[in-house]
Design a protein around this nucleic acid. Structure first.
Lengths: 224, 224
DNA sequence: CCATTAATGTCGATG
DNA sequence: CATCGACGTTAATGG
């Protein structure tokens, strides 16, 4: 992990092209080639290069130049260092991966394990069922054996989710019985709900589960 | 700009919940409240907090704890610092903004200015035309006065782009004449092209313009 | 403040 | 390798 704080100007050329005039920025270069340039504001880097790029340093007319080059697609960043305030590096030891919960996938897992959370009598039958309009998150039957098609969203569902669901239901148009199309999400926009109802489809509120599978920090781990 | 390199473990709770066990990471805190935690791999931070969050430090049982709290939506990161290798800060001076070209918007600008790049006889008439299925990037007529609806993409167009265009064209179904639906992009996926042709729509290849409007670095600027 | 959509989106899974 | 879709997407824009 290389950390450089410097006054610099930056040029980028690739899928787009950009130019950033002289100012103070933080430059971060990671072990996998990742190259990022941060200004003092905003979450995202102002310029960056994805993992796998090749980084090199050169000197031209008394100015240090950093270059970061990538292929597929061809992209290049050039940083002209005017004043370097700080340049250092660390060999990081980090073997852990992020464990995260609260994704759409976890909602489907939950509905599969506890179908009563969807509704009484719901019996899930298939996950990731492939249609010509894409994969259906979850299929099943209700207490009256009617076919149910469920589309999950981990956050507020919009009209796109409804259109997606519509496409799935249309794949069963030749079904002799009515097929229930259902959006399962923590919330839904007004527009989406209106569209949903006009299509005789349903919304079932459900929050994504966030229970981490691993032990909490309050174990022996704290001592190592 | 506060820069901390430390062995730490991290907990996050908000829209999702996550946990990252002990390891070496870079923690970056910006003037606007932005809080990011970087592992030694990958472009994106493993945990982060957007601008506007409130960050504070506390000490509990001989351990330094960083907390970053945000509302709307409620989100919180807690970093438990086990060993701090480096902690420093800089007052950055940076008045410049990024100038960037190569966006979809620039393609529409270009087609508006130089309609012959789309095709001979093309006459653009409206930009951002609102329909019930969204805004049409650009409308116009061809040499035979046929209506043309253009959807621009700054990178390879996929099936989503075609479906979007389809939605726009359907808003003109009651038109007495055939309406031409056209994807304008540097490239298109096989699936998208197949779908496009089945809908009797067209693809016109065009790269987004990347000419920067400002002067190049080879000016007096280099001396300041 | 809510809804929509582009993005050098990134990233992971899949064929 | 290309495609497809989720994401704590982020960020900007318009109502």
């Amino acid at each position: 992990m290389i950390i450089i704080l410097a006054q610099c100007h930056v040029e980028y050329e690739g899928r787009a092209r950009s130019r950033l005039d002289k100012g103070d920025r933080l430059i971060l270069i990671k072990k996998d080639g990742t190259f990022t340039i941060h200004q003092e504001l905003n979450l995202d880097p102002v310029n960056w290069q994805a993992p796998g790029c090749k980084n090199k340093v050169s000197l031209k007319e008394n100015q240090i130049i950093l270059q970061s080059i990538k292929t597929k697609p061809d992209e290049e960043i050039t940083v002209y260092l005017d004043t370097v305030y700080c340049a250092t590096y660390y060999n990081c030891v980090d073997t852990k991966n992020l464990e995260i919960r609260g994704y759409e996938k976890h909602m489907v897992d939950l509905a599969w394990e506890k179908p009563e959370l969807i509704e009484k009598g719901f019996r899930p039958t298939r996950r990731e069922y492939q249609t010509e309009n894409g994969f259906i998150d979850l299929m099943g039957t209700d207490k009256d054996e009617k076919l149910m098609i469920l589309e999950f969203k981990s956050r507020k569902a919009g009209t796109n989710a409804v259109k997606q669901l519509k496409g799935y239901v249309e794949c069963f148009m030749d079904n002799k019985e009515f097929v229930r199309g259902i959006i399962v999400a923590p919330d839904i926009t007004d527009n989406a709900l209106e569209l949903l109802k006009s299509l005789q489809m349903e919304f079932i509120p459900l929050n994504p589960p966030k229970d981490l599978l691993t032990k909490k920090a309050s174990t022996l781990d704290s001592f190592f």
